[in-house]
């Protein structure tokens, strides 16, 4: 049963990679951005169906780091360095947000 589920997952990933790299017609950087967006889809699965609140916080934290990489590649596509500014600020805000969520999860609030 477990092996069957693993195999189905492998098939889905292989189908996505085949469609992205051999059927989709675009420059290589767009294909790489598609892979990162596929990863973000997995993270969104964890945000929506995470059994506990901590799972959702982990997913949001990871999404912040993924987006930094995506913005760097997007900056390469358009050859503009301000995308990296957005990425740096995004990483900063996501870090602070993770710390704040963790503090609230622990049961402490602003005045502690």
């Amino acid at each position: 049963m477990r092996l069957l589920r693993w195999f189905i997952g492998l098939l889905i990933i292989a189908a996505f990679l085949y469609g992205n790299f051999f059927i989709y017609d675009g420059i290589i950087l767009y294909k790489l951005i598609n892979v990162i967006l596929f990863c973000a889809l997995f993270v969104l699965f964890r945000v929506l169906f995470g059994p506990s609140p901590a799972d959702r916080i982990v997913a949001v934290d990871i999404l912040g780091i993924l987006i930094v990489g995506l913005l760097a590649i997007l900056g390469l596509v358009f050859d503009q360095s301000f995308f990296m500014d957005i990425g740096l600020i995004w990483a900063l805000m996501s870090f602070i947000a993770s710390l704040a969520f963790a503090k609230i999860l622990e049961g402490r609030y602003l005045d502690d």
């Binding site: 993770s98 963790a102 999860l105 049961g107």
Partner: peptide
């Protein structure tokens, strides 16, 4: 961030 989340998860 990982350390903070792990500690908060365990304490809650």
């Amino acid at each position: 961030a990982a350390h903070a989340i792990a500690r908060a998860a365990h304490r809650s």
